[in-house]
Design a binder for these strands. Structure first.
Lengths: 346, 346
DNA sequence: CCTATATACTGAAACGTTACAGATTGTCAC
DNA sequence: GTGACAATCTGTAACGTTTCAGTATATAGG
């Protein structure tokens, strides 16, 4: 039985199970089991091993574990490099980081571009076994990525829901409630002809938003001014131009609902291009992820969406699934705040 | 000699060197060398192996490589979860992704919070050998992280320069030129009493910005109104309040230079809180990373900083260093665009 | 005293890769 | 025909971990 530390150990300085085995006078197997509280290890031995491990700062070698067990201790966040430009992305990342901070998990960011099949990065991750869990966004009602991962049995969570009759973890913002509340608020201040700047049609929350919008419209008896030639994915310039166009018509909106803060800047610019005034001729309710819109125009009405929270929830869900929880119990919906008008600081 | 595919091979379906060895009738060693164009492999054998590998979609097992060689094929981007809030972060990530997309590298995001020693995450990465290269931001003149990594010989690149007489790769925006140009522009439109909203003092580019500011001030014969009780790291509310205060004084700035777009919103709010008007009573030159400031107020004067480019340059630098290039050749400085006034989109 | 059983530990093998130290050919010079 | 040498190929070991199939010791039952 050879329990010596090899030359290499001394060189890298990094302690391994072998080092611990040598120091404690035990075998590597025993040390390995002692560290993970296996039942067949004596209580004192267990304590002794764990003490020594803590003292010398032992950390399991990720490559060793991964090679042996297939466990990567990696969560992958899959991002579209082009759409996700208005950078709530960083908030999601921070939210995820927060949650995995005191776990052995690392966060890897897997990008894909517009030109690619969104399934490509997922396939890569699954085929190469590069992650224990995956987080995706831009979720669609019938999402091939979710279907694919369900088939392969790899844990994931989606930012946004699907609508395929399949159960999986998700976190979503209640966009139905957002749109409905926005309509009610606008109606409450006398607005009657409302336009919706919606998410792109292919995403699930397009429907949610639209349903909330139309349901509340009929509830309050207001009418819709069609504004569906643009979505929040369009460029600032396009949204601005289309807004100006619609505002120059005889029958024009007196209220807008915008699903994204950046787009709201463009809507307001368009309104002003048409010579009209925010708060007088028209009101705008917008989602925002940071508190900046009110600095932009005080007349704006805002609803906050917390992406950091979303990131944290998504991470919790994936970890939960990896940990064996039932996917159906790992779903959460974030309730929108009330529509907020500007209030001067103190 | 046993060249059979094991049960496990069949189960996971993922081809390994052993699979390739079996298919080609060669030994694993030969296959391994053939794939990396080793010289002692016959030309035909090499082609044959590579053909088969391509056909069956062989991908080296990362854990195997990492365990054997220590090479992780990972670049780590180290981020502060609190300061880096105004999310040019996503742009940097996209820039990095872009560059490493067709390399075997993965990007992992390593966060740290304000409370922690910034050296902590770096130590972790180095001690656990979790990455082949590191990218850090919030660089300081005397940066312990850069020093530490230089000592350990781990390749890295800094966003921003250091000033320790040590050579390492960096990418930086020329903030000296930015501040100087901003002063000249303001002087050119008749502004004489300028205030600077600077980066936090501990960061290297604070000095760069300040030097550009003061040098150009004396060059054009304008004067400084002290505004150093806040920095761009302060909260929106604090900046706004301090701006309002200084604008209510008898001798008040007629020009601002702002190092960050979010802070600029606060400055403008403060100006308006004091009952003054942008473009008439005071002009503001601001850096921005997306084209949104002009939607906010047309009177703003902007200079663009491209963080996506920064991310790409940083990635290129780290990869270059890993690839053996001299650190001194992997430094780049991004030249600011001219100060831009608003132009209506035709 | 012997056997059965539980307790506490152990070495060997394997995950997929690469480095090392050969081994097997064939060719050429003499 | 022999030795030297280059050109190709090869098995073994090792990286650090966990799992499998044990082994040794003590305790208890009869």
């Amino acid at each position: 039985m050879d329990r010596g530390r090899s030359k290499d150990d001394e060189a890298t300085g990094r302690p391994t199970l072998k080092t611990l085995a040598f120091m404690t006078g035990l075998g590597v197997t025993t040390v390995s089991r002692a560290l993970k509280d296996a039942p067949e290890i004596g209580a004192e031995t267990r304590r002794r091993v764990q003490l020594v491990a803590k003292q010398i700062g032992y950390r399991p070698n990720r490559a060793g574990v991964r090679l042996r067990t297939g466990k990567t201790n990696v969560i992958s966040l899959v991002l579209n490099t082009e759409h996700e430009i208005m950078s709530f992305v960083s908030d999601i990342i921070y939210g995820v980081s927060e949650v995995i901070a005191d776990t052995p998990y690392h966060l890897i960011v897997t990008p894909y571009s517009r030109s690619q099949d969104p399934l490509d990065p997922i396939r890569y991750l699954v085929e190469t076994g590069s992650a224990d869990g995956v987080i995706i966004s831009r979720t669609q009602p019938n999402d091939p990525r979710a279907r694919y991962m369900l088939e392969r049995g790899i844990p994931f969570a989606t930012h946004g829901r699907t609508d395929m009759g399949l159960i999986h973890p998700y976190h979503d913002f209640d966009n139905y409630a957002f749109a409905a509340e926005a309509v009610r608020h606008l109606a409450g201040i006398g607005r009657r002809r409302l336009a919706l700047l919606a998410p792109p049609v292919e995403l699930t929350y397009y429907r949610h938003t639209l349903n909330g919008f139309t349901d509340a419209l009929s509830e309050v008896g207001a009418s819709e001014i069609p504004f569906n030639t643009v979505s929040i994915d369009h460029s600032i310039e396009q949204i601005r131009m289309r807004t100006a166009q619609v505002m120059r018509r005889d029958v024009r909106p007196d209220g807008f609902i915008s699903s994204a803060a950046a787009a709201t800047l463009a809507i307001v610019a368009g309104i002003e291009d048409a010579g009209l005034k925010l708060g007088r001729d028209v009101d705008v309710v917008s989602k925002q992820s940071s508190e900046l819109l009110h600095l932009f125009r005080r007349e704006l009405l805002v609803v906050n969406e917390n992406f950091r929270l979303a990131g944290a929830e998504l991470a919790r869900s994936v970890l939960g699934w990896i940990g064996g929880a039932a996917p159906g119990t790992l779903q959460s919906l974030s309730v929108p705040s009330k529509v907020q008008a500007y209030r001067h600081p103190n």
